[in-house]
């Protein structure tokens, strides 16, 4: 697993998913072969806008730092990296919705990070080499190695405040489950869920993973009859402020490593709304039954 060094392209580009999936062979995904760098660069389309935010340098820097910081605890890199990735790769949701961008980052800029973060150690049961699932390189935004972190940061940040992101990404169950739910598209809902999670962590609750899953299921189920948007009103973010923050990328220093960076000042969620939902979700979480894992396993093997 060599770190790709000198041949990393300077700028991000757009790599079509059809191309990406064709190069993601078993050998590549198990780390035994390098991706054909030149072919990938040729197949990628460039981003017209000449802004500094598409430079790969700052990205490589935080990815390398993450790999060295969390060499012994790879999953913990998520909580550290998510806010810093978001603050480095400054863009609108519309721009982030392009899978081609994430494909390029994973295949052309930092395949080493994808392998480092997601390749399980040891050998599979049947003796074949373990490999990273294709979607970690090129896949839905809740699975792709970088998209999931950027989107987690976007969904859980409270305006410029990345603290809720750290909490959410610090729990793999939260990160894996909740990012797939539409309910967190409503900011007060997302923040209230983080607060409940925070409370669980603080009180040292047992079976934290089960509790998080139960919370998610409860919020998602109640969301079939309750419109949280009406119970807990929110406002549109300040688009101008977001644009200003994105424009600042030109002259902004690299993100700090030991304290959290600042996000865009595009407005925080209404306190009262988050409070109301926190109270409600806490109640749901307290009443929710924890999943009986033995039953689940029985159902799976049936």
């Amino acid at each position: 697993m060599n770190r790709s060094g000198a041949d990393v392209p300077d700028r991000l580009a757009l790599l079509p998913s059809a191309v990406a999936s064709k190069y993601l062979t078993n050998a590549v995904r198990s780390g035994h072969e390098r991706l054909p760098q030149v072919a990938i660069l040729r197949a990628a389309g460039s981003i017209e806008d000449g802004s500094a935010r598409w430079s790969t340098g700052p990205l490589k820097e935080i990815l390398d730092e993450a790999m060295s910081r969390f060499a012994d605890a790879r999953t913990e890199a998520d909580a550290w990296l998510a806010p810093r990735l978001h603050a480095t790769l400054r863009m609108t949701r519309a721009e982030a919705a392009r899978p081609e961008l994430w494909n390029f980052l994973a295949l052309a800029v930092a395949p080493d990070y994808v392998l480092w973060r997601h390749l399980a150690t040891g050998e599979a049961k049947d003796g074949t080499a373990k490999k990273v699932n294709t979607p970690r390189f090129a896949g839905p935004q809740d699975s792709q190695a970088f998209a999931r972190l950027w989107w987690a940061a976007e969904m859980f940040r409270d305006g410029p405040d990345y603290r809720p992101v750290e909490v959410a990404c610090g729990n793999q169950d939260m990160l894996n489950t909740v990012l797939r739910l539409d309910t967190i598209d409503h900011k007060p809902t997302a923040l209230a869920m983080v607060r409940v999670l925070e409370g669980m962590v603080r009180s040292g609750a047992t079976r934290l993973g089960d509790r998080v899953n139960a919370l998610c299921t409860a919020v998602n189920s109640a969301g079939s009859t309750l419109l949280y948007d009406v119970l807990a009103p929110d406002e549109l973010p300040d688009q101008e402020a977001l644009f200003a923050w994105i424009d600042d990328a030109e002259g902004a220093p690299p993100v700090p490593w030991d304290r959290l960076p600042d996000g865009p000042e595009d407005g925080t969620a209404r306190r009262a709304s988050v409070d109301r939902l926190t109270l409600m979700f806490q109640e749901l979480a307290d009443g929710a039954p924890l999943r009986d894992r033995s039953r689940k396993r029985a159902a799976d093997s049936a």
């Binding site: 949701r93 519309a94 982030a96 919705a97 935004q141 989107w151 976007e154 969904m155 539409d182 967190i184 598209d185 409503h186 419109l227 948007d229 009406v230 929110d234 549109l236």
Partner: peptide
Amino acid sequence: CVAVLTEGATNSRTV
């Protein structure tokens, strides 16, 4: 009565 605008690709929701 509320109108809800959503998009999966951007996780955006406007009410």
